[in-house]
Design a protein around this nucleic acid. Structure first.
Lengths: 144, 144
DNA sequence: TAAAAGTCTACTTAATCAGTAGACTTTTAT
DNA sequence: ATAAAAGTCTACTGATTAAGTAGACTTTTA
């Protein structure tokens, strides 16, 4: 399961994508509309800013806004940033690889094989899910 | 990520599958061969027995053995049993469903859609990964 | 009947999750 | 100039879970 932090991050990003290039949005605003604890949200947005996904403007009239293009941010990136590994075991992880004690030979591990497939399929779907696509899908859905 | 407990459970099951219908295998044996802390392994095997995947024999010459057929036990079952939900969010979970506060309308949630795909693909792969297939794959791999 | 096995309850210890508090800095409108 | 509005940053807190451990107990068999 994703952490709540990650879920909040995604929802905040979707909110900011809906307001892309419309000036800064205040934390307070996002917090209220998306029901995310304000203080917690502050920390999350800061993290997204440090990753150069968001930028902020301080002072009155300030707030957060998306600097990357909505087509250039996807769920894989966000999940990796906030929650870390996507793979189900360290021995099939790309960014957090660690050898597995239980098997002498990784090549002949029958478990690894399936979990590699899961990882690949998951990465495929998540990297295809850009903020642009998510928001587009929501707008289309709402027409029905 | 899977818990270590779940990883241990899978490795123990594979070990018992390799010895299917060859009489009980002692905890000590599994523990040593698979490098799993014995006391921890005891708890895991007990859980698998309560789920009617394993059966045990007490007393001297006792141990654990697989009662379900190796074709009837798959990674989806084991992961659900030990770690719980497979889905990445409660709102896309089959067995642990919970409504998501952030979206007014679940149908029009653009995030949900991708995570449903991830869940479906994952379940597909994991339920196809039976103990029989895993062991078969290992045996074939070892020939090379 | 002793030794070998699994069973069960109850700890423990460390890490992570999900936040909160509060002082600080920057910016803008008056 | 300065008050108010905004984000920044460090440090804490409390609850839960992960990963085991201890130890007494029961069952079986040679």
């Amino acid at each position: 399961m994703l952490s709540k932090k990650c879920k909040y991050a995604i929802h905040a990003l979707v909110y900011l994508t809906e307001r892309y290039e419309q000036g800064p949005v205040q934390i307070q605003d996002i917090s209220e509309k998306k029901h995310i604890p304000k203080k917690f949200l502050e920390a999350i947005l800061l993290e997204l800013r440090h990753a150069n996904i968001l930028e902020s403007k301080k002072g009155k009239g300030g707030g957060y806004y998306l600097v990357k293009k909505p087509t250039d941010v996807n769920l894989m990136q966000v999940m990796r940033l906030i929650d870390g590994p996507i793979a189900l075991l360290p021995c099939v992880s790309i960014n957090y690889y660690e050898r597995c004690d239980e098997c002498k030979n990784e090549k002949s591990c029958g478990i690894r094989d399936s979990l590699l497939s899961v990882r690949d399929e998951t990465l495929q779907i998540l990297s295809d899910a850009t903020l642009a696509k998510i928001v587009k899908r929501e707008r289309q859905m709402k027409l029905n």
